[in-house]
Simulated assay, not measured.
Amino acid sequence: MRGLITICSFLIIGVLTAYYIGFGFGEKQEPKAVDKELEGLNEKYVLRFSHVVAENTPKGLAASMFAQLVREKTEGWVEVQVFPNASLYEAQGEFGGLMRNEVHIIAPAFSEVTVLDPKWLVLDLPYVFQDEQMIENAFNGKVGSLLFESVEEYGLHGIAYWDNSFKQFTNNVRPVTRPEDIEGLSVRVMPSEALIETYQVLGANPLLFPFNEVYDVLSAGIVDGTENTLSNIYSKGFYQQQKYLTLSNHNYLGYAVFMNKEFWDTLPTDYQNSIMEAMKEVTLWLREHTKSINEEMLERIEKSGQIEIHYQTEDEKNSWKQAFKPIYEKYSGVIGEELMKEIQRLQNNH
Rank of each mutant, 00 (worst) to 15 (best):
G221F: 02
I222F: 10
F211T: 13
Y89L: 00
S87V: 05
C8Q: 12
E288G: 05
D163R: 09
H51T: 00
E299C: 07
I5H: 11
K119Q: 14
F148K: 13
E338G: 08
E308R: 11
E136I: 13
I343R: 03
E27W: 05
G141S: 08
N140F: 06
E299P: 08
L202Q: 08
E288V: 05
A107L: 01
S219W: 04
A18W: 13
L207N: 11
I307S: 03
F139D: 02
P179D: 02
I182K: 02
F211Y: 12
S332A: 15
E180V: 12
Y20N: 15
V78A: 00
V187H: 05
S87D: 08
N349F: 09
I327N: 05
A63V: 00
I5Y: 11
D315L: 13
L11V: 14
A18L: 14
Q306A: 10
E329V: 10
Y255A: 04
E180Q: 14
W285S: 12
N232E: 15
E112R: 02
G26V: 14
D131E: 11
A256E: 11
L116G: 01
I5N: 09
K73M: 05
I233Q: 12
V217R: 04
N56H: 10
R188H: 09
E43V: 15
N164M: 11
F209T: 03
L339Q: 01
A62C: 05
E180W: 10
Q344E: 14
Y199G: 03
E152A: 13
H51E: 04
M134R: 09
Y328P: 11
K142I: 06
K167Y: 07
D124I: 11
Y89P: 01
P31L: 14
A278T: 01
L69K: 08
N85V: 11
Q241E: 10
R48W: 03
F49N: 00
G14F: 10
E197M: 10
R300T: 12
W285R: 06
I307Y: 04
A194I: 07
I12Y: 02
L247T: 08
R48V: 08
Q344D: 13
F23N: 15
R100W: 07
E132T: 10
E314N: 13
V80P: 00
K44S: 12
K341I: 06
E152D: 10
P206W: 01
F110Y: 12
E281K: 08
T246V: 07
P31T: 06
D315G: 11
A138L: 10
V334A: 12
S235T: 11
W162E: 05
E308G: 08
